[in-house]
Amino acid sequence: MVELSVLQQRFGIELVESTFRDNRRIDVPAAKLFDLLSCLKSDHGFNTLIDMTAVDYLEYEGATDRFGVVYMLLDVFGGERVIVRTAVNLPDPKLPSVYSLWRGADWMEREVFDMFGIVFDGHPDLRRILMPEEFAAFPLRKDYPLKGRGERHNFPVITRAGS
């Protein structure tokens, strides 16, 4: 099991650790995120990025940051899991891409970009993955209306005589 004190010594910063139902979570500032993740991968054997996602904390009770980005790591051989969380804010939500560490991050980062508009620096191909290319908004942001802004009606109408 990776000791928090080891990581803290190595990076010289306070890391906050918490647990929820066997899930071990480490909060890290965005500036140290990439170093921490690459250290976890190379020195502590977390060779798989199970999932990565983001949360919009707009109007969430007690939240100080707008977005939380979550990385779930697994050590396939040791069976250990850890969740690394970081926070980003508007107007320029940006994080380093972890594509160079885990190739699986490719589509996950594209999805987070597509849904929340968080930009991943160094991603080789950061395009929308679920929404159409010409879509202008980021639909999982809490200030985007559930029913959209009329994008779903933006198509030519084909009549029977005209087809």
Partner: peptide, 28 residues
């Protein structure tokens, strides 16, 4: 033959959404 592709409610939703500050690079 379908209903109007754009109901009036949708216009209100657009207005409401624009009242919220979006920030960043929202092109909409």
């Amino acid at each position: 033959m379908g209903p109007e592709p754009f109901e009036s409610e949708e216009r209100y939703r657009i207005q409401d959404a624009n009242l919220v500050q979006l920030g960043g690079f929202s092109a909409a």
